[in-house]
Each structure stands twice: as C-alpha cells, then as structure tokens.
Design a protein around this nucleic acid. Structure first.
Lengths: 119, 119
DNA sequence: TGGCTACACAACCACATGCTTGTGCTAGAG
DNA sequence: CTCTAGCACAAGCATGTGGTTGTGTAGCCA
C-alpha cells in the first residue's frame, strides 16, 4: 500500500499511471459528465436519464455501464427499472477543481483581452 | 461569469461540459501523466523528459504541445533547449484526488477478497 | 559559413472509442 | 402464458487519437 502515498512524490508505478489515466478518460466524455451532473440531483432510472439528456437508450446504458465499471455509479433494480446512484461523491470535488482551473484560465484570457483591446 | 459557479448546481452549459471533458481527456493519457509527474520534481527540457520517460523526441514534444495548449505547462527557450514547467499546480490536487478514489476502490476490493478468501 | 544539436510541425498508419442498429433478457401487466 | 416495457449486450461504421517517420527551423560552435 505504500506505493499509493502521494505525500512524498514517488515515481508513479506504471500500473498506477494507467489506472489514473483510465479514470480520467472515463470523465473525459461530455455524455458521462452530463450523466453524473444529472445524478447529482439524485438517483434516476435509465429512462429518466435518457429523457433528460435526449440520447438513445442504448447509448445512455452504455455510458452508464462504463461509469459503473469505473465504480463511480451503482445500480439497483427496482421493478422493471434500474436506478443509478452516485457511488463516489469525490467525483464532484474533482469536477469542481477542473471547473476552477477552467475559470482561472478564462479569467486570464479576459485580462489579456482587456489589456489588448482597450476599446 | 455566473455560469461557472458550482456552489448551487446549475445544469452545466453544453460548452462548459465540453471544456471539462476536454480537460479530463488531456489528463487521460499515461504519457502525459508521466510528463506531469516528472515536471513535479522541477523544470525540465524536452531531452531530459525524453530520457526520463524513454520515449521518442517527437512523441514527447507532441504531448508537451497538448499539455501546453491546455495551459497546464509553460515553455521557455533557454539556449537551444526548451524548458517546460508546471503552469497550473492545481493539476496535482486533481491527481491526488483521483489517486484517493483509486485507493478507496482498491481498499474495497481487498476487503471483499479477505472476506471471500479466508485462506 | 557550414555543420550540429535541440525541438516543433505535418503526414501517415494502426488502434481505440463513440454512436447507431439490432437483439436478447428480465420483470410486471393482462 | 403472452405481451409489453425497460434495460443490457453485441456488431458495424465513422471518427478521433496515439505513435512513428520525415522534415523544417532556431540557436550554438568551429
């Protein structure tokens, strides 16, 4: 377990690097971001998510399967439906940080525009 | 700017979702993770990064270009070399959180293995 | 000036991935 | 038992992306 401490920077193991990259790539699809954002409001069935995002049932199911395989959401059969829930709330902290980085970037761009376009 | 507040969950704008996804995808490549991890120790030239990762010069340069376009690293010409530096330290906080998520996941898997494999 | 080093850029190929179409499976309604 | 709704899985196509090869360019050095 000592290999996963990030306090003292150890040169990341190759397998750990792959795990991190894979996890990032799961979050690197707009559809999955939207699914997680919708699930932020609470649990939802596949049909509800499908209607909320305006996508095909198969596509929604596929992305939900990827999110489930990554351990970010959890399934639960309820009648004929399947209810999905956020399994790892830490995903939102990560998204917030990414949004923060984007916000800083945009702020920087705006300051440049304001200085170069005095009009 | 009100569109980027994440305190009260607003339904993410489509363009913002794409930005977030794109940013995640930049971090979704093992080579780029390794580059950032190496740059964590301090600035480095392309040649040093190339030797540290054991990759081709063109490939390293390509990934560095992507990281630079994403605003995560910054260039600086020094003689004939080009020195790269971490431009947005927040990336490491994100990586740490992802590592934390993986750690929790592995811990969960271990507990399952220990209960199902008493030997 | 000629050559060399260090790096970036562009074209190409191979592979991974997203979306659609088609289909199978399960649970409830009748 | 049959029918339907809800969902997951598999194949196929189109696109995006990583890696290599080849080449152009800028900055030293002799």
């Amino acid at each position: 377990m000592a290999a996963f401490h990030s306090i003292e920077p150890p040169p990341l193991t190759e397998s750990l690097v792959d795990l991190v990259a894979q996890r990032f790539r799961v979050l690197g699809e707009p559809m999955r971001i939207r699914l997680l954002d919708r699930l932020r409001e609470g649990e939802a069935t596949v049909g509800e998510l499908q209607q909320a995002l305006g996508a095909s049932q198969q596509n929604v199911s596929k992305h939900l399967g990827i999110l489930h395989a990554a351990g970010m959401v959890s399934r639960a059969k309820r009648g004929t439906s399947v209810v999905y829930t956020i399994a790892d709330p830490a995903v939102f902290d990560i998204c917030d940080q990414v949004c923060g980085g984007i916000r800083r970037q945009i702020a920087g761009l705006e300051s440049i525009l304001q200085t170069s376009l005095p009009a």
